[in-house]
Design a protein around this nucleic acid. Structure first.
Ligand SMILES: Nc1ncnc2c1ncn2[C@@H]1O[C@H](COP(=O)(O)OP(=O)(O)OP(=O)(O)O)[C@@H](O)[C@H]1O
Length: 726
DNA sequence: TTTGGCACAATTTTT
DNA sequence: TTGTGCCAAA
């Protein structure tokens, strides 16, 4: 059984998989089977070496990769489940460890701690800046947040940071960082960086906890080691100390998260960091055709900070990498979509992917797909759990479970509105401060002591009842039932419905709340009814597609970052323009530029059979046309490996495909010009030319909002204004 | 306190 | 082009 498993590996891979122990680094290029080696090694350890699943920790980069890894191992071992095997991201692993053992630190956290998402953190920083009278104009909350995050990954506490701080920016950040930390501690909450940092502190400071995990993890395996940060490195160090069995795989050419604190030095220094570490190289690429591989290799060879490697393939040439220069971004998308339509004869939708540098680029491609009825799925981007309505509902659950969670309480205190406005909230916050207690305690005190007008006190009591109800019901029922109750008790759905006028599309928002409930049901059927666990999963979940059921046959649209670790037979790498890829904000420094080049390399090496690089001579940015230049990266790929193309990619057309084309041709064309619609150009007697921005109502009472070229925005009654369509 | 309107500013990448 | 925050009016 084990032998058969090893048969599907080449000699170098087999060496890695069966490596007896100690520290080892598999350093290898794209598509050389690193991830495969990890999966096989886990299976090998469990079967041939009789290691208990409980003793193995495998770290992946995303939750999705973790799931896939688990599935692969199960498949290799022909097992239905391996519940004790730890596979997950660093963050998930730390969250799990902290849930079990944070209290050993003796405060300030308890096991019900909340995990803050980026949105919560940003909101808090914004508020703290405002409290200090710092305008967002001068200092961007985002910059503050990333300074704090950077400090945390360097292991710099707020106090240490404040001591070291020099210069206007850092001197502004320092007190905010201090206040931020205090707030989180008081709220029994951790941000993403804290998960790692506090876990590390726990392991370093509590010998009994350290001993427990050091003893448990006889084997630690890490995928994508090139994108680990300093804290993660230290975690691995501590955890692997007893057994010394640390098995890492990575590719320095695919390090693309420096902006998030990843330190490429980790992989470059592996041998120095872990004495006696063995380095294993894999040089055969199993993924891409030769043309694709060589084009990518040539590109990344322009980087200087790399170890360098040979990478070869036995696959055929496979035709040159195509480069398409489109007149505009719309035509770029049209070209890509038409090509996919014609490639459908040979590939399933799901085998094709469109990659881009920024999320904003997805839109044009979505429209192009929509027009042609190409099923597509945007991976990442706008996350389901980040929607306002979803976050509101979750905040009730968070607050019910962790009453110290001040951010959650503050978020929902007056949502839906119950007459507790800004002044009341401020007074409550002051009261909490004065009595050195939590916000919820302050609310309770205020209600009991009648510190506010009676109407306000009644509202406060009502609010407390709901939080209590959540706490009580969470113990008995599953997340879905608790949520259902919250919705009823708060009238939240009705509130959304009323929001009709101002809020965008109330129905979609109500639908999102429903989807949340069904996601919970689904969770319950898989993992049981633990609300705490659900909230943790949700906080760490990245893409929304974890919600959706099963793989659908749809074209994938995603950023280059999101494409890491994946592979597709057909890849379109779009927007290869100067200042976009490489992005203007990263091209300033040589290091930044090299990372952009790696990003491009990652994108190219996702392709198995066909790779097309596209760029547009003109692109809409904020609705304004901009002239664009091709990316310098295009010039770094040798001419022999690329070919300029002009027409749509053709594959032999099947009857089915011809039908699809015809169908698409008949598909919804833009509405006829002569109808008053959003985007229509109009002329007004007095105001001259303008563009319709919005329409409300219909018939006689229809109102039109128009942006006039010379008079700005006006709202008019369509029936009286005498508008001419032009 | 709430609502709606309006100006304005923003886009890198994400656990 | 979208979203957000601020301000004025009810
Ligand atoms: N020995 C092998 N025989 C057949 N196919 C292989 C072998 N090794 C790897 N492959 C295939 O090559 C492809 C790439 O493997 P894998 O994703 O593990 O590579 P990787 O090194 O992790 O890639 P990347 O770093 O680019 O994400 C997969 O489709 C895998 O099945």
């Amino acid at each position: 059984m084990d032998d058969r498993m090893l048969d599907t590996l080449n000699p170098e891979q087999r060496l890695a998989v069966t490596e007896p122990g100690g520290a080892a680094l598999v350093l290898a290029g794209a598509g050389s089977g690193k991830t495969r080696v990890i999966a096989h090694r886990i299976a090998h350890l469990l079967s041939a070496r009789h290691v208990s699943a409980h003793s193995v920790l495998a770290v992946t980069f995303t939750n999705k990769a973790a799931e896939e890894m688990r599935a692969r191992v199960l498949d290799l071992l022909q097992k239905p489940a391996l519940p004790f095997l730890w596979i997950g991201t660093f963050h998930a692993m730390c969250a799990r460890l902290l849930r079990a053992d944070v209290e050993a630190l003796g405060g300030p956290y308890n096991r019900n701690f909340t995990i803050l998402d980026a949105d919560d953190s940003a909101g808090l920083v914004r508020r703290l800046l405002r409290d200090r009278g710092v305008s967002e104009r001068n200092i961007q909350p985002r910059a503050v947040l990333s300074a704090i995050s950077r400090a945390k990954t360097e292991g710099l506490s707020a106090e240490a940071f404040a001591e070291k701080a020099r210069g206007h920016f850092f001197l502004t950040v320092a007190p905010v960082y201090l206040a931020y930390e205090r707030q989180l501690a008081d709220s029994n909450s951790m941000d993403f960086d804290d998960l790692l940092g506090v876990a590390l502190r726990l392991l370093e400071e509590r010998p009994e906890v350290r001993a427990k995990y050091q003893h448990q993890f006889q084997h630690i395996l890490v995928d994508e080691y090139q994108d680990t940060n300093r804290i993660q490195y230290r975690l691995l160090r501590v955890l692997s100390e007893k057994w010394g069995n640390l098995f890492a795989v990575g590719d320095e050419d695919q390090s693309i998260y420096r902006w998030r604190g990843a330190d490429i030095q980790n992989i470059l220094d592996f041998q120095r960091d872990f004495r006696g570490a063995k380095v294993i190289k894999l040089e055969r690429n199993y993924r891409s055709t030769r043309a694709i591989l060589e084009a990518a290799n040539h590109l990344v060879a322009h980087n200087t900070r790399r170890i360098g490697k040979n990478l070869w393939t036995e696959r055929g040439d496979g035709g040159a990498v195509r480069v398409f220069a489109a007149p505009s971004d719309r035509e770029e998308a049209a070209y890509v979509a038409d090509s996919m339509l014609s490639l459908k004869a040979r590939y399933a939708w799901r085998q094709m992917a469109v990659l881009y540098r920024t999320n904003a680029q997805s839109r044009t491609f979505e429209e192009a797909c929509l027009n042609r009825r190409i099923p597509y799925q945007v991976v990442g981007g706008l996350k389901f759990y980040e929607r306002k309505e979803v976050k509101d509902v979750l905040a009730y659950l968070r607050a019910g479970l962790n009453p110290q969670d001040r951010l959650a309480v503050a978020r929902i205190l007056n949502v839906p509105p119950r007459g507790l406005g800004a002044t009341t909230v401020e007074k409550l916050a002051a009261l909490a401060e004065e009595r050195r207690t939590t916000l919820v305690e302050a609310i309770r005190a205020a209600a009991e002591e009648g510190l506010f007008p009676s109407r306000t006190c009644t509202a406060l009591r009502g609010f407390l009842d709901i939080l209590q109800g959540v706490g009580k019901r969470a113990a008995a029922g599953g997340p879905a039932a608790v949520t259902q109750w919250v919705l009823e008790a708060t009238g939240y759905v009705a509130y959304l419905a009323e929001q009709g006028e101002s809020g965008p599309d109330p129905e979609a928002r109500i639908e999102n709340v429903r989807e949340l409930v069904s996601a919970m049901r689904e969770f319950e059927s898989r993992e049981g009814g633990d609300l705490r666990l659900f909230l943790e999963r949700q906080a760490l979940a990245s893409d929304q597609d974890e919600l959706k059921d099963g793989p659908v046959d749809a074209v994938r649209l995603m950023t280059l970052h999101a494409a890491k670790g994946l592979e597709f037979p057909v890849v379109f790498l779009s927007g290869l323009e100067q200042d976009l890829c490489p992005h203007a904000l990263s091209s300033q420094t040589e290091e930044g530029l090299e990372e952009e080049r790696r990003l491009c390399y990652v994108g190219m090496t996702r392709a198995m059979d066909r790779l097309t690089l596209t760029w547009a001579r003109q692109r809409y940015v904020f609705g304004v046309v901009q002239d664009r230049l091709p990316s310098p990266f295009l010039g770094e790929i040798p001419g022999g490996r690329v070919e300029e193309v002009h027409g749509v990619e053709r594959a032999p057309m099947s009857l089915l495909e011809a039908a699809a084309l015809l169908d698409a041709a008949e598909a919804p064309k833009p509405a006829p010009q002569k109808v008053l619609r959003v985007g229509a150009r109009i002329h007004h007697k007095k105001y001259g030319f303008g563009i319709v921005l919005a329409l409300e109502g219909s018939g006689e009472s229809q109102k039109v909002t128009v942006s006039f070229n010379r008079f700005g925005r006006k709202k008019l009654l369509a029936s009286l204004a005498g508008l001419d369509l032009v």
